[in-house]
Nucleic acid binder design. Structure first.
Lengths: 239, 239
DNA sequence: ACCTGAACACCGTTCAAGT
DNA sequence: ACCTGAACACCGTTCAAGT
């Protein structure tokens, strides 16, 4: 039961802001949001708690920086991903969506953090990053300018929400055999929903069976297809 | 500077769970999530911190209960709202959406809390509540059963995300003159977005001007119309 | 300029003791 | 059964002091 993943290997490199944020992300991944402590972080960086404050204003800023770093990496499509990015805008949107989907799956704390970040300050650095990468594809889709905001927002909110909800199914236990784990959790959700009051929750109970055994990623993409259909339909675009 | 809204007026009614949750919501509204403290809550209830633990397992459960209480109130459409609810399913969806929109606007802490709740436990009580109320309308819309989950999810995530983001524009300062306040904040967001790097953020900058002066509620409903269009288009439903 | 680490104020939670 | 309130362990943050 060695919870502490000590790592005082490399001792003295001057301790930069990047270094701190990187360690914060690692700690977040390892022990979750509650585990991110200035003391634990300091130990991991082989210094005292006070040192961190020289590079970062406080915990709020640290969390924002960690979130931004992960989002930036997720949203920047590697050139290898799609040879020349000569794909359709739809493919581009799917790529961005899956990038965020995977990032949230890899860093479960991201779901809550993204919501906090967006609902706290839309003028921060993380909101524009996501908005821009989706918006460009919306633009390429031929959506008229006055609808750019609506279409991009709809996509962004669905992507963030659905990916976040999905992360709950993955992050229940350790990382061993995530596929098995997920099936178990999905079954649990399905069972819980089927156990709801028949009078109050007829619809949710009816859907419960569908949830079981469905592929997450497929479901996620189906939602995106739905919104894309709405975008093309409402503006009579050709597909 | 009397931040403390003391209220030891009514002293001794046995202190029930409902009472505690109600006081928690009040405190949350007054001082935000960071202000919800077992000590502050106890003071407001004219008891000690330990007493609360007799009725509630801990802070996590308290937050969940507070969220659930507000969501339950928001999602239950008052009979006065729509005489016999003989409206169209579309109207029903808009009603649910606006109910949540208003609730988040009234209780800004709800945005973060909802995301936390959904991404932590989809099998909790709050997710089914929202899912059910939206899903019934989706069902009434004539969506085929295998698409219930996708359509309802898309709507739910958009509603929660967009309403949450919107709350950020409202909750910046005190409650006096929220309309003026909001215009100011919207201008600030717009200005911040226009100040982004032209090379990295061409799309976001282009949209920045649209943001200014647009009606939030109208924007919100436009997004819902978009998703509804997708639903009816993809299943070739008649409107 | 950058780091140290003790100290401060505060928090969630527990629990022996009361009624 | 239900409440009290002191106590515990821990946290974010500060800051005089060091290098």
């Amino acid at each position: 039961m060695a919870t502490r993943t000590r790592r005082p290997e490399r001792r003295q490199e001057p301790l930069s802001r990047e270094h701190i944020v990187g360690a914060a992300v690692e700690l977040l991944d390892a022990v979750g949001e509650d585990g991110l402590t200035f003391r634990a972080l300091a130990e991991r960086l082989a210094t005292g708690p006070g040192a961190i404050y020289w590079h970062v204003r406080g915990k709020t800023e640290l969390l924002a920086a960690a979130t931004d770093a992960v989002v930036a990496a997720a949203v920047t499509i590697e050139p290898a991903e799609s040879a020349e990015s000569a794909d359709s805008p739809q493919d581009g949107i799917r790529a961005v969506a899956l990038g965020l989907f995977d990032a949230i799956e890899e860093h479960p704390w991201l779901a809550t953090q993204l919501a906090t970040q967006l609902s706290r300050s839309p003028w921060g650095t993380v909101a524009p990053r996501i908005f821009e990468s989706i918006g460009r594809q919306v633009c390429a889709l031929g959506v008229p300018e006055e609808s750019w905001f609506t279409a991009t927002s709809a996509l962004m909110h669905y992507i963030l929400g659905a990916a976040g909800q999905n992360a709950a199914n993955t992050a229940s236990a350790g990382t061993a055999r995530p596929d098995v784990d997920r099936a178990v959790v999905l079954d649990a959700v399905s069972a819980a929903w089927e156990g709801l009051d028949p009078d109050d929750y007829p619809f949710t109970r009816a859907v419960a069976k569908q949830v079981r055994g469905h592929d997450d990623r497929e479901q996620f993409l189906a939602g995106i297809a739905l919104i894309l259909a709405g975008i093309t339909a409402i503006h009579s675009l050709t597909t």
